[in-house]
């Protein structure tokens, strides 16, 4: 089964001037997402494979160095997953 990422549904998003804040009522925290993290959050309204996310960013930023972009998006996804802003899910459809 492929690893997919999606928004943590337990977090309540609030948008202020285009920037996203996520309220974690249970954890007693408020996360602020920077521009790139906000774009990832919006993209992951439906589950996405990590490679598909990177492809989306390559498409959005064609002038960026592909290797560097891949590395920074991977690192961002890892951070967001560590903070439980994103959660990992498994999608049987992708494997089928």
């Amino acid at each position: 089964m492929a690893k997919m990422l999606r928004q943590n549904p337990e977090l309540e998003p609030r948008e202020v001037e285009g920037q996203i804040f996520l309220i974690d009522e249970e954890g007693g925290k408020i996360h602020h997402l920077n521009r790139t993290a906000s774009a990832v959050w919006r993209l992951l309204e439906t589950p996405f494979d990590q490679n598909a996310i990177i492809d989306q960013f390559r498409f959005l930023y064609p002038d960026e160095d592909a290797k560097r972009l891949k590395k920074s998006i991977r690192s961002l996804l890892r951070d967001l997953a560590d903070q439980k802003v994103l959660i990992r899910v498994r999608d049987k459809k992708v494997d089928a």
């Binding site: 202020v16 804040f21 309220i23 974690d24 009522e25 007693g28 925290k29 408020i30 602020h32």
Partner: peptide
């Protein structure tokens, strides 16, 4: 708002 939110400050109050 981003600068004022301090995740490390313990409080009994709801983050909402």
């Amino acid at each position: 708002l981003a600068r004022m939110i301090d995740q490390n400050y313990a409080t009994h109050m709801s983050p909402t």
